[in-house]
Amino acid sequence: MKLNHPTGQAAEDRALAFLLEQGCELVERNWHCPYGEIDLIMRLGDKLLFVEVKFRKTQAFGGAAYSITPNKLAKLQRSAEYYLQINQLNTACRLDAVLLQGTASPQWITNLTG
Rank of each mutant, 00 (worst) to 15 (best):
L3E: 03
P6Y: 00
T7K: 14
G8N: 13
A10T: 14
A15N: 06
L16Y: 06
F18I: 14
L20F: 02
E21F: 01
L26H: 02
P34Q: 03
Y35Q: 11
Y35S: 11
G36V: 06
G36M: 07
G36A: 03
E37V: 15
I38T: 09
D39S: 10
R43M: 03
L44H: 13
L44I: 13
D46Q: 13
L48Q: 10
L49F: 09
L49K: 15
V51H: 07
E52N: 11
E52I: 05
E52G: 08
K57G: 05
Q59S: 13
A64M: 11
I68E: 02
K72C: 06
K72H: 11
K72F: 04
K75A: 05
L76E: 07
Q77M: 09
R78W: 14
E81C: 10
Y82C: 12
Y83M: 04
Q85T: 14
Q88A: 13
Q88T: 03
L89P: 08
L89V: 15
N90K: 15
T91C: 04
T91G: 00
C93F: 04
L95I: 07
D96S: 13
D96N: 15
A97W: 08
V98C: 04
V98H: 03
L99A: 06
L100N: 02
Q101T: 14
T103L: 14
N111G: 07
